[in-house]
Amino acid sequence: MHNFEYVRPKTIDEAVSALSSDEAQPLSGGQTLMPTMKARLAAPEKLVSLTAIDEMKGVRMDGDQLWIGGGTTHATVARETADSYPALSSLAGRIGDPSVRSMGTIGGSIANNDPSACYPAGALGSGATIVTNTREIAADDFFQGMFMTALEEGEIVTAVKFPIPQKAIYQKFIQPASRFPLTAVFVAHFGDNVRVAVTGASGGGVFRWTEAEEALASNFTGDAVAGLSVSAEDMISDLHGSGEYRAHLTKVMTKRAVDALA
């Protein structure tokens, strides 16, 4: 790893100002960034640690929404949302392994937008709001493609706000070596509408399977999905699975999710 200047601010304002210089990058757990820097795929001149900012940590109810600070670790989310939002707790509790969950944070995962990460599916599937130091962004507008988000240079995910569905589930088909989803689906039922977010499958990153959402809104059964088909055109094709396989998994995992909830 190339050397860099390291700073660890205590407040969001200090962090934003530290990030204003060129070549500065935030560090928010580092479970992706550390390996990336060791492989010299990233070599920031300055790392701004977000791990000592108390105002970015914690889980609480904010009206009828669940507020989770951007610097909250997966382990804390898994533990503290078990009652308020069990599907999200289950998602957080299955990311990586226990040591990764001690370090990795929701803000880091969402800002990175790995096409196979779990949190983007949870956020998009829930219709969450991404809170940054300057604005609030709907999850529908936030995730913009593989490793691409609506974040501007130096903008930090300070929190994520989740509306809580009537019922929801995260169905994950893991790639057993990496523990990332080969394909995973987050299905949330809000009574009058259904959201289906898919991760691990598309080269464009997390996406909503709107055809399934429409079918499920009027008939929330596995059968409603059975007749649909998913195009393999934009799907990731690699040594772990072809695009056709991932397209098929999208449907299978959605059906399993609905069967488990119905």
């Binding site: 660890r8 580092g30 550390m34 790392l47 226990p98 040591s99 990764v100 001690s102």
Partner: peptide, 15 residues
């Protein structure tokens, strides 16, 4: 680290 399991190869000493 503070009671939690951590992979010490993936955490900066300064953290």
């Amino acid at each position: 680290v503070n009671g939690n399991p951590v992979k010490a190869c993936s955490m900066l000493a300064a953290e």
